[in-house]
Amino acid sequence: MPDVASPSEPASLADRPALRRRGPGRWPKEPALADTIPFEDALVCWTPLSEAASGFRATAGQVEVMALPDRTGRSEAYACHAGGSEVTDHHLTARKAGVEALRLFNRLVLGDGMRPRVVHEAMIRIREYCLAIDPEIPGARRAQGRRRESNGDDYVA
């Protein structure tokens, strides 16, 4: 017999409005590239579902990107933090910051089991992430003068 959730807790993640799956093509409004945060100045906060029982139930399964420093204290509601605060030793080039942003995306999805779409929707606030992902993905941006890459299949003689 399946477990039945009590009325005070959601039956599944699909019942949470912030995590509800959107239909095809229904992405949130994308920030302009000028409104994004450089990776070195970004703080990525998240709570894996496995941490819900340890006092982070309100933010379980959620990801938020905010600018450093966090003067509001919003980051304290999350179990895990990463991003610019980990990269304080030296200045990263845009390419290396893009690699670090993609590495962080994979850490959240593969390491902590976060939902890829939830992570992506939060990380499009990071400038280098927007520039590093495939241009066909919603939220992607192209740098000034950056040519679109091709595998050569679209060549017409």
Rank of each mutant, 00 (worst) to 15 (best):
V4C: 09
A5H: 09
A5G: 12
S6A: 07
S6C: 10
E9C: 06
E9W: 02
E9T: 05
A14P: 01
D15A: 08
P17F: 04
P17H: 02
A18I: 05
L19G: 06
L19P: 03
R20F: 05
R21L: 11
G23F: 06
G25N: 00
W27K: 04
K29I: 08
K29E: 15
E30A: 10
E30Q: 11
E30H: 09
P31C: 08
P31E: 06
A32K: 15
A32P: 13
A34H: 07
A34W: 04
D35H: 11
D35G: 06
P38N: 14
P38T: 12
F39W: 10
D41T: 06
C45D: 04
L49Y: 07
S50H: 01
G55L: 02
F56P: 04
F56D: 00
F56A: 10
R57I: 02
A58I: 02
A58H: 07
A60G: 01
G61I: 01
E64I: 08
E64L: 10
E64M: 09
V65M: 03
M66A: 12
M66Q: 10
A67T: 15
A67W: 08
L68R: 01
P69A: 07
P69T: 02
D70L: 02
D70R: 03
D70W: 02
R71S: 12
E76F: 08
A77Y: 05
A77H: 10
C80F: 02
A82L: 06
G83Q: 06
S85H: 10
E86K: 05
D89V: 07
H91S: 12
K96V: 13
K96I: 12
K96Q: 13
V99I: 14
V99F: 08
E100H: 09
E100F: 12
E100R: 10
L104S: 09
F105N: 01
N106K: 13
R107H: 11
L108R: 12
V109G: 15
L110W: 00
G111K: 10
G111T: 08
D112Q: 13
G113V: 03
G113F: 06
G113K: 11
R115I: 07
P116C: 08
R117F: 05
E121F: 08
A122K: 03
I126Y: 00
R127Q: 14
Y129S: 09
Y129C: 11
C130R: 15
D134F: 07
D134M: 05
P135C: 07
P135K: 09
P135E: 14
I137E: 13
G139C: 11
A140C: 06
R141H: 15
R142L: 14
A143K: 05
Q144P: 15
G145C: 07
R146K: 15
R147V: 05
E149H: 12
E149Q: 14
S150L: 01
S150W: 01
N151K: 00
G152I: 02
G152E: 00
D154Y: 01
D154W: 05
V156L: 05
V156Q: 05
V156E: 12
A157V: 10
